[in-house]
Structures are given as C-alpha cells and as structure tokens.
Amino acid sequence: KTVHVDGVEYRFNNPEEADKFVKRLVKEKNGNVEVRGDTYHVE
C-alpha cells in the first residue's frame, strides 16, 4: 500500500499499518481520502 500526503509518498508492507496511518492523518487534517488502486491520497 502507498499513501500520498502533500506530495510525499509513504510505503507500507502491512496494509493494517497503512490504514491506521491514513485514519490518523484524516483526523489531524480533517481531510479526505481518495483511494486509487493500491494508493491512498490524503488531502
């Protein structure tokens, strides 16, 4: 899984860790998540 945040790319081998990371980011930023294939885009 890959997570894109503000143009920075984070790669996770463990999908659960990627999910936790995304949830935390969305809370912090009050942002939205767009999923494209295996990539999460957080804005």
Rank of each mutant, 00 (worst) to 15 (best):
K1D: 02
K1W: 15
K1A: 13
K1Y: 15
K1Q: 08
K1T: 14
K1E: 05
T2I: 14
T2W: 05
T2A: 04
V3Y: 03
V3R: 00
V3W: 03
V3Q: 00
V3N: 00
H4W: 15
H4P: 00
H4Q: 08
H4M: 15
V5Y: 12
V5N: 01
V5A: 03
V5L: 05
V5H: 06
D6W: 04
D6A: 04
D6S: 02
D6C: 12
D6N: 15
D6R: 01
D6Q: 04
D6T: 00
D6Y: 04
G7D: 04
G7A: 01
G7C: 14
G7F: 00
G7M: 00
G7V: 01
V8L: 07
V8E: 03
V8T: 05
V8Y: 05
V8Q: 07
E9G: 01
E9C: 15
Y10Q: 01
Y10T: 01
Y10N: 00
Y10L: 02
R11Q: 08
R11N: 07
R11L: 06
R11C: 12
F12D: 01
F12I: 01
F12E: 01
F12N: 00
N13S: 13
N13Y: 05
N13D: 13
N13G: 06
N14H: 04
N14Q: 03
N14F: 04
P15T: 10
P15G: 06
P15M: 08
P15E: 14
P15V: 10
P15D: 11
P15Q: 14
P15L: 10
E16C: 13
E16R: 03
E16T: 05
E16D: 10
E16H: 05
E17I: 01
E17Y: 00
E17D: 11
E17N: 01
E17V: 01
A18N: 00
A18S: 01
A18I: 03
A18F: 07
D19I: 14
D19Q: 08
D19A: 11
K20S: 13
K20W: 08
K20L: 12
K20I: 11
K20P: 02
K20Q: 13
K20N: 13
K20M: 13
K20E: 15
F21I: 01
F21C: 00
F21M: 01
V22D: 06
V22F: 07
V22I: 13
V22Y: 08
V22C: 11
V22P: 01
K23L: 11
K23I: 08
K23W: 04
R24C: 15
R24Q: 14
L25H: 05
L25P: 03
L25M: 08
V26W: 11
V26E: 13
V26Y: 10
V26N: 10
V26P: 04
V26F: 11
V26H: 08
K27Y: 10
K27I: 10
K27L: 11
K27D: 13
K27G: 10
K27R: 07
E28G: 06
E28C: 15
E28D: 11
E28I: 06
K29D: 06
K29S: 14
K29N: 13
K29F: 14
K29T: 12
K29W: 14
K29V: 12
N30Q: 08
N30R: 07
N30I: 05
N30V: 08
N30E: 09
N30C: 15
N30S: 09
G31R: 06
G31F: 14
G31D: 08
N32V: 14
N32E: 06
N32W: 15
N32A: 09
N32P: 04
N32Q: 12
N32L: 11
N32C: 15
V33D: 04
V33S: 06
V33M: 04
E34T: 14
E34P: 04
E34L: 12
V35M: 10
V35F: 10
V35S: 05
V35E: 06
R36V: 12
R36F: 11
R36P: 07
G37P: 07
G37Y: 12
G37M: 06
D38N: 10
D38G: 05
D38H: 04
D38P: 06
T39I: 11
T39L: 09
T39N: 09
T39A: 12
T39G: 12
Y40V: 12
Y40Q: 09
Y40E: 08
Y40R: 03
Y40F: 11
H41L: 12
H41E: 09
H41Q: 10
H41A: 08
V42R: 05
V42N: 09
V42K: 06
V42T: 09
E43Y: 15
E43Q: 12
E43K: 12
E43R: 09
E43P: 06
E43H: 13
E43W: 15
